[in-house]
Amino acid sequence: MNFHKSCQEGFPENRIRPTHGSPGFYSGAPIPLRVSALSILSVQGLAKNYGSTQALQEVNLEVPAGSIFGVLGPNGSGKTTLLGIVLEILLASRGSFRWAPGLKRGALLETPNFYSYLTGRENLEIVAELRGRGRDGLSQALESVGLDSYESMPFSKYSLGMKQRLAIGATLIGQPEVVVLDEPTNGLDPAGIADVRQLIRDLRGGGKTVLLASHMLDEVEKVCTHVAILKKGKVLSQGPLEDVLRDEDRLEVKSDDLEALQALLQKHPLNPKVQRGEGCLNVVFEAGAMKPSELNHYCLEGGQTLGHLVLRKKTLESRFLELTD
């Protein structure tokens, strides 16, 4: 009784422990991908209607092999619908998608769905059978998500965080080349979230592709190599994370004479936007148009010595809000 109570109130050992090199599970050692093609998933013109509501509109995506591809968007933007279609749970109204042939996939879509009357281990046994795997690696799977001590507990007694951990563990059984995770940090505490982040990095280190849907932007920014930002079923922006973030270069500069510096910058042939900040100037160029060193040189030539020069990158959150607002 106490055992169950402690699990419901707080999972004492709720750490997801990445197990580098665990046989039968995922390992840190690079696993050669079966496809060397540029993209592991290609989505073309995908649309999904629910009556008159358009959940997805002409979505085109390319998920590069070996990437951690984040699908971002506010609630109702179509993230889960998109994943549901490419995982063949939902039917597309139009368009098509194609996975690289012969790939094994592991996926968590929305909520963890297991047989409530079976234990965690028995549920994973079913997953292993469905993937055509024996029972090797089940213990590692349970251990790596911190559920080895609770493998004999019925799934119905698991807390939300434990259920989520079991689902993440299940996606990794049988060493899939592609792991699809829909909001994997749901129900997890901060330590669990950090563990998931590390686990995703380890997956990439192991040569796997991760397709990740989340609205936790800071998490995505920490782990993703590529992102697609969705709003109302449309892709607003997609590509390598840096490209998506860098639609412009914002340089923060300061000198002893801000007015003279402002006048000099406004004469710059690239015609940047110059705005007053707090004790400094913000100079905005088109992305990639100006290097900080070049700007420093220009200012020196114009008789202004810079006491402060910083290239300010946008956070994913600010870029996301800019695109979706």
């Binding site: 592991g106 769905n113 297991f114 993937r131 299940a170």
Partner: peptide, 13 residues
């Protein structure tokens, strides 16, 4: 009702 049929499909069937 428990959506396990979806999970069966996600897991390989």
């Amino acid at each position: 009702e428990s959506r396990t049929h979806r999970q069966n499909l996600l897991d390989g069937w």
